[in-house]
Write a protein that binds this DNA or RNA. Structure first.
Lengths: 248, 248
DNA sequence: GGGCCTTCCTGTCGATCTGACAAAAAGCTA
DNA sequence: TAGCTTTTTGTCAGATCGACAGGAAGGCCC
């Protein structure tokens, strides 16, 4: 700590967003096709640099959330910092990654200024090599892992649903994020046993197929007790592979 | 995203360290007395700016860990980003906070270039108002909360212990971090039941008082199953207040 | 050595929680 | 009304948890 002439470096700060949602029972992440170098034409996470020296970091994340995905009032939490030297060929860029959870809404992607935004299945992304820009593949992996863990201990799953939802809707969230199939009877009992997790609203849901389901809304509790333990064993069908089918 | 003349801002990047350890059954955090403005003379977390534009952020954290606390090879994980405009009166500074866990070693603080480093009890810090520089009070709170949660689900507790330890040592970690008293019999059963958490080494420990205790070392498992549930109820003595005494 | 202290370790019991089922309830379609 | 679907309520055995009893293994003092 000499007082001489040393000056600490100033560095470019960016935000990147891992926006997860459920579409047709599949977990999907929002990607945008890059319109500038580097990685021109490659898919990347939505994000960008701080606007000016006075913009708050989370405010920048919400701004990008609105600009690039047309989303507001969704769950948003910090995921981590990605700042290895060399991760951006333009020079030193430190990126703060955020995890956002969006409910499956009627209109898929509205108000995106870059029309090159699209939802991509997390399954395809993690297994089949889809080349992404920068270290965004790793960021997405970390984001999904975060979501998986938080589904166990917190009420995060309700962020995937709309204002009201059925217990089956909630089960689809758990199945998609964890990539497993769950027993509906036990899931039902467990969810209702977690105090403060969900609150019944009076009404029922349009039964497209079977018995009408009761509707619930998110409860006040953030930490689940007892937790939704991710069990080691799964029903005969085992892991979910693709398609909701599983017609044995 | 105009291509005009706009240039993203460059910002000062710092690291701050929440270094936790156990000293005489109490959870303590390392603080240093500031030698420069702002907050001259106030206690603050160890930390500092990146050395140059090419230093990795975690490397900077390890450098500070070594320089200011004389520690190496301790558990270190990212805690979060603290970057609100205005948190540093000098201008915009974004700080990446890290959580470090140090075992209770023989020599308390060695090799600190700032001799103004000292351990402070977390209890005193969180309850009695001890003014800290910047937003470091909040960072410490977040660090302790992180430690509390991770003690439940991961093998983080072993990071507070040395190479080998007894189950009682481990229990002291849980009691100090959670601020509760635990039943030794149930704790023993639970720890031994968590598969891969601890591995017995053959020997016993010098019994200063009672029956010699078996020694263990940390196991390979990072995620505990079953977890060490933080129960709602506690033995009659209730919360730990101060002092190991509890002589009724 | 014999009490008596301490702490460590093993075990027991009832309450709670979990996973694997059965079966009833409540809609739709034919 | 029969048959199909999905939701909801149970049942039952096994795992786990908190509260506690009691034996094991040292040291200390007489």
């Amino acid at each position: 700590m000499e007082d001489d002439e040393w000056e600490p470096p100033k560095i470019l700060l960016a935000v990147d967003l891992v926006i997860l949602t459920l579409r047709e029972t599949r977990l999907q992440v929002l990607l945008v096709k890059r319109g500038i170098e580097p990685y021109l034409g490659a898919y990347a996470l939505p994000g960008g640099f701080l606007f000016d020296e006075h913009e708050d970091i989370e405010a920048a994340a919400r701004r990008e959330l609105s600009e690039e995905a047309g989303l507001a009032d969704v769950h948003l939490e910090e995921l981590g910092v990605y700042g290895e030297p060399g991760r951006d060929p333009r020079g030193r860029v430190v990126s703060v990654a955020y995890l956002a959870i969006a409910p499956s809404l009627p209109e898929p992607i509205a108000g995106t200024d870059a029309a090159d935004a699209c939802w991509m299945s997390v399954e395809d992304l993690l297994s089949g090599r889809v080349g992404l820009a920068f270290d965004h593949h790793r960021i997405i992996g970390d984001g999904i892992e975060r979501a998986r863990v938080k589904l166990e201990h917190t009420a995060l799953a309700t962020a995937f649903c709309g204002e009201t939802f059925t217990i089956s809707d909630l089960q689809q969230v758990y199945e998609a994020v964890w990539g497993v199939r769950l027993d509906p009877r036990n899931f039902y009992r467990k969810v209702k046993g977690a105090r403060g997790f969900i609150i019944p609203v009076g009404s029922l849901q349009r039964p497209e197929n079977g018995r009408p389901a009761r509707l619930f809304k998110a409860g006040p509790v953030r930490v689940l007790h007892p937790p939704m333990a991710r069990s080691t064993s799964v029903p005969p069908e085992a892991q979910v592979t693709r398609e909701g089918g599983v017609r044995s």
